[in-house]
Amino acid sequence: MEILQPQSVLVTGSDRGIGLGLVNQFLEKPNPPEWVFATSMNLEGYHGKELKNLALLHPNLVVLQLDIRDLKSIEAAVQRVKEHVKGNGLTVLINNAGILVKFTCLANETPEQMASLYHTNTIGTLQVSQAFLPLLKVAAQASPKKGLSCSKAAIINISSDFSSMEEMSGWWLSQVISYRCSKTAGNMLTRCQSLEYKQFGILSLAIHPGWVKTAMGTCLVPTTVKESTSGILKVLSRVTEKDTGSFLDWEGNVVPW
């Protein structure tokens, strides 16, 4: 297994849940990244303040305000990251920020709800990836590593097995139509990124983190945040060029599209 050694990592939506878990996993590595960028929509809220307190304990942790729906907010975050990474670029972008909002079904789904989730879960992921692409290219070009890996340059999109059209996981428990559709569209975005960005030395991957006990999940779930996020880092340590454009779960298993 290759040792995961990204020089820098940015995780969106990282003031709680899986995002915060990923930030902690990177910070606790024996060989942590030089820079870990954690983002929150509201740095003055409870979770944002907790994230800022964590940064006091880790000098390599930089906390940024970022609303993935707002281009000005995204560009401001890009500029902050540039100031820290300088000419080294950004090694790994983890698009974790996303919303579920309401437990909808076909009978009560609305255009407004569908548009809201697409705006965040799909368009937000696209916008953030586009904005950080120049820094990812710089990291790939500066890396001496051959092929593709998460120690060179990578976009990791946090998906869900609810997006699998073959499995239709959890259908009888929760239809959540707009969430499923937005995440399925995000999977297609990952595939498109893998085809377009491979030429620049950037790996692209969709990952299902498992059914995790978070604010978005429920208490009746088998996987903890720590189990999920430590598993994700193990997956990131072993993916290579052959895996770009894949949809994997937190244990490294292939998830059907």
Rank of each mutant, 00 (worst) to 15 (best):
E34S: 09
F37S: 01
N24Y: 08
G21P: 15
A38N: 03
D67P: 14
N53R: 08
L22K: 05
L56N: 12
Q25G: 15
H58L: 05
K29C: 14
K72Y: 10
L27I: 08
H47M: 09
N60I: 02
T39W: 00
S73N: 06
L71K: 02
V23T: 12
L61V: 06
F37K: 09
N31R: 10
F26A: 11
A38D: 01
Y46G: 00
S73M: 10
K52L: 05
P59M: 00
P33D: 04
D15A: 13
D70Q: 11
L61R: 01
D70P: 14
P32Q: 08
S40T: 01
D15W: 04
N24I: 10
Q65A: 15
G19A: 12
F26P: 12
P33Q: 03
P30E: 15
G13K: 00
I18E: 13
M41H: 04
R69D: 12
L66A: 09
S73R: 02
N31K: 13
N53Y: 11
I18H: 10
L27A: 11
N53Q: 12
G48L: 06
S73P: 02
K52A: 07
K29V: 11
L57W: 13
D70E: 11
Y46S: 13
K49F: 07
A38E: 02
K52M: 06
F37W: 04
D15I: 09
G19R: 09
N60C: 02
V36Q: 01
K49G: 08
K72M: 14
G19N: 04
D15L: 05
V62Y: 03
E50H: 08
E50R: 05
N60K: 04
K29H: 09
H58R: 05
K49L: 08
V36P: 12
K29P: 02
Q25N: 15
Q25T: 14
D15V: 08
N42H: 02
G17W: 10
I68G: 10
H58C: 09
P30Q: 13
I74A: 09
D15N: 15
L43Y: 07
T39H: 00
I74Q: 01
L61M: 10
T39K: 00
I18P: 15
N42V: 01
S73V: 09
G21S: 11
I18F: 13
P33H: 02
P59L: 03
I18D: 07
L51G: 05
L71E: 10
P59A: 00
L57I: 13
S40M: 03
H58Q: 06
H47V: 12
R16Y: 10
L57M: 13
G17N: 07
V63T: 13
L43A: 05
Q65K: 14
Y46V: 12
L22H: 10
G13S: 03
R69V: 11
V63A: 06
G45E: 02
G48V: 02
W35A: 14
G21D: 11
Q65L: 11
P30N: 15
W35D: 01
L61C: 09
G21I: 13
L54I: 06
P33M: 00
L71Q: 06
Q65H: 08
K72S: 14
K72A: 15
L27R: 07
S73I: 07
L57A: 15
Q25A: 15
Q25K: 14
V63L: 07
Y46I: 10
L51R: 04
L56G: 11
L20G: 08
H58K: 05
A55N: 08
F26D: 03
V23M: 03
L22M: 12
L22R: 07
E50Y: 04
R69S: 12
